[in-house]
């Protein structure tokens, strides 16, 4: 039976060796990875939403026609987050805005940096340091022609060991002058988690 014990030890050794390949490691991951970790809102969900919205918008025929000769000025509204989660929704709209800007079809107004803009203009106007000829005057910024609005909601269902989460992101482009929605689309994502019999 001594051989038996040796064989058992060998099994343990080989097992340990092969498993050690999966021991704690630290490495850089792929920023574009689509591996879901949980049903919570994740990076891949954000990327899917942003790409889907931008793709839909820049190929919509009336938008193609409108942007063929000019680059309309757009303002981005805050996302109405109706999910139960704390999500940095500004990060979603930032991604969408960056992609739309890089497509060369739109220009944007950024209301989040208005305080800094006013401060800079005040310095240019009042400090006496800046040449009056090159100082930027107040009241010369362009007004936005369109407003990009969005809604984000989730439906969460749980039964036994299964958690099913459905996300829906809806975005619309509103013409500020006429009040008409020029474009709208939604992206749906479903994530299903089933708890295994073993482990957490």
């Amino acid at each position: 039976m001594k051989n038996g014990i040796k064989a058992l030890l060998a099994v343990a050794a080989i097992g340990a060796l092969s498993l050690s390949g999966c021991a704690s490691t630290m490495q850089y991951g792929d920023a574009g990875s689509a591996k879901p970790i949980s049903t919570e809102f994740g990076s891949s969900d954000l990327q899917q939403i942003a790409e889907s919205m931008v793709d839909s918008m820049i190929v919509f025929p009336p938008i193609v026609e409108m942007t063929s000769s000019r680059r309309p000025v757009v303002s981005v509204d805050k996302v109405k987050n109706k999910t139960m989660q704390h999500i940095d929704t500004e990060s979603i709209t930032d991604s969408i805005r960056a992609k739309l800007l890089r497509s060369g079809k739109f220009r944007f107004i950024d209301r989040t940096t208005d305080a800094q803009t006013i401060e800079e203009l005040k310095i240019q106007q009042d400090s006496g340091l800046v040449d009056k000829k090159s100082a930027v005057q107040f009241g010369q910024q362009l007004g936005a022609e369109f407003l990009l609005t969005s809604n984000f909601s989730e439906i969460r269902q749980k039964a036994g060991s299964t958690t099913d989460v459905y996300y829906k992101f809806t975005m619309s482009l509103k013409n500020l002058k006429t009040g008409i929605l020029e474009w709208s689309d939604e992206k749906e994502i479903r994530k299903v988690f089933t708890r295994g019999t073993f482990g957490g």
Partner: peptide, 20 residues
């Protein structure tokens, strides 16, 4: 028993490798 153990080791090794 020894053969069985070797098979088990191979199975564990395969599992370990598949995981990564």
């Amino acid at each position: 028993f020894v053969v069985g153990c070797i098979a088990a080791a191979a199975a564990i090794a395969a599992l370990g490798l598949v995981g990564c």
